[in-house]
């Protein structure tokens, strides 16, 4: 188990074992032009990272493209991740990675604002002007054809609030099944609320590994676990 620490981080950097990531949340249409400028800058300076690219980096230890890799990550499963961010990724040739709180998508649009406020999903003004806030399952399926989609638990939960066996089943296992049923693909990664690392709770580590996830994303590192 690799627990986060300054010593670990320093050694990973020294060995050349690192990846650039940019984390996004709601990407409202009103800020589309600014997001476009930012993503265009990243696309100019960095190479896209597909799931195969990440696999190869872990297998060889070497990044194989001319420019360094960069992963833009769009969290939570907002509708505007599908309607604003993903088309910009397509335009600039970036591969987006989309961690999705699957129960947010499942929630009746009438109650999605309340779901968000109940589960630490931040909203901007444009999100609250009425209508659906989360992606639809159809949008999730469409995204998965060109980008990487994976569970961010079901209800946007942290490992420290996922306590019972039933909680673990719902947040870790059923979220994966729900996503895979829609995309027809393996959900290759998992991330807890707050980006907690693998190695902090053996019980939760076992659950994530046993569910068959290949990677766990965290705020200090990307763990390859299967």
């Amino acid at each position: 188990m690799t627990r986060p620490s300054s010593t670990v981080q320093r050694e990973q950097l020294r060995r050349g074992h690192f990846m650039r990531v940019v984390n996004y949340h709601s990407t409202p249409r009103g800020a589309r032009d600014e997001l476009a400028r930012e993503l265009a800058g990243f696309a100019r300076d960095y190479a896209p990272v597909t799931l195969d690219d990440l696999d190869r980096l872990f297998e060889t230890g070497t990044w194989h493209k001319d420019k360094p890799g960069l992963i833009p990550v769009f969290y939570e499963g907002y509708r505007n991740s599908a309607t604003v961010a993903a088309p910009l990724c397509d335009q600039f040739g970036l591969t987006g990675w989309f961690p999705i709180a699957t129960s947010f998508v499942e929630c009746d649009p009438e109650y999605q604002e309340a779901f968000a406020r109940a589960h630490w999903i931040s909203l901007v003004e444009e999100d609250t002007t009425g209508g659906r806030i989360a992606m639809s399952w159809e949008e999730v399926a469409e995204l998965s054809r060109r980008h990487v989609v994976f569970p961010h638990t079901a209800h946007h939960e942290g490992f420290d609030t996922t306590l019972s066996d039933g909680d673990i089943q719902r947040e870790v296992v059923e979220s994966k099944r729900a996503l895979e049923a829609v995309t027809g693909q393996e959900a290759p990664a998992f991330v807890w609320l707050h980006g907690s690392s693998y190695g902090l709770s053996p019980r939760h580590d076992d659950a994530v590994r046993s569910a068959g996830y290949r990677y766990q994303f965290a705020n200090t590192m990307i763990h390859r676990i299967n």
Partner: peptide, 28 residues
């Protein structure tokens, strides 16, 4: 944060074993 991403540099950890050393000089 509704207009700007949060850049991060993440380390890589293979819980199954060891990631091979990076032979690429620029990467190191």
């Amino acid at each position: 944060l509704e207009r700007e991403g949060i850049p991060m540099v993440l380390g890589l950890a293979d819980e199954r074993g060891v990631i091979p050393s990076a032979p690429d000089r620029a990467q190191l």
